[in-house]
């Protein structure tokens, strides 16, 4: 297990350097999107519309936070199960999505696309939402506000602890 501190957006050299099982601290911009937002983004693509953020080079955090108390940046903010996004993910990877943060297994299609498109799938610790919220220093809803917790947020993270589950070399922890 190697340890890395990596700035976002992810550089190709960083993606190539990390391997399944490595511990990584991420700093920079990530976008939150989960089930309902993925559905909407996919529908937007089908209609030839623009996505709410530039997917090329971006990192998505599969997250639906709890509401922030007054004075807090965000509420509890841990990962949700990634496999529910599998159906939508290969298309996003082909458009340049470079990183995903979630938890749990991915489909073979997603793993293949991670290799093909040179991306990386990270897991954050499930059920550690209070701790992880401390690493989010800015958060702003940028699309689909009506979805409540499932809205798309632009977030700045600082030293967010994640573990590489699937690397671009075709290796996976599980």
């Amino acid at each position: 297990m190697a340890e890395f501190h990596i700035g976002l957006p992810l550089k190709e050299s960083d993606i190539e350097a990390v391997h399944a099982g490595d511990y990584v601290y991420l700093t920079g911009t990530v976008y939150s999107a989960r089930d309902a937002a993925h559905k909407r983004m996919t529908e937007a693509l089908e209609k030839g519309e623009k996505l709410p953020f530039d997917i090329n080079g971006s990192v998505i955090y599969y997250l639906g936070p709890s509401p922030a108390r007054p004075g807090q940046v965000i509420g509890s903010a841990g990962p949700t199960t990634s496999s529910r996004m599998d159906k939508y993910t290969p298309a996003l990877l082909d458009l340049g999505l470079k990183g995903m943060i979630g938890k749990g297994r991915r489909s073979e299609e997603v793993k293949d696309a991670i290799k093909r498109d040179k991306a990386v799938y990270f897991a954050a610790v499930g059920g550690a939402g209070a701790l992880l919220s401390k690493c989010i220093i800015k958060s702003e809803v940028i699309a689909y506000e009506d979805l409540g917790t499932e809205a798309v947020r632009k977030m700045e993270v600082k030293e967010l602890p994640v573990i590489v589950v699937t690397d671009c070399h075709g290796n996976s922890v599980y």
Partner: peptide
Amino acid sequence: EAIPICQDT
């Protein structure tokens, strides 16, 4: 700090 243990409450 009264932050839920997990965001999925």
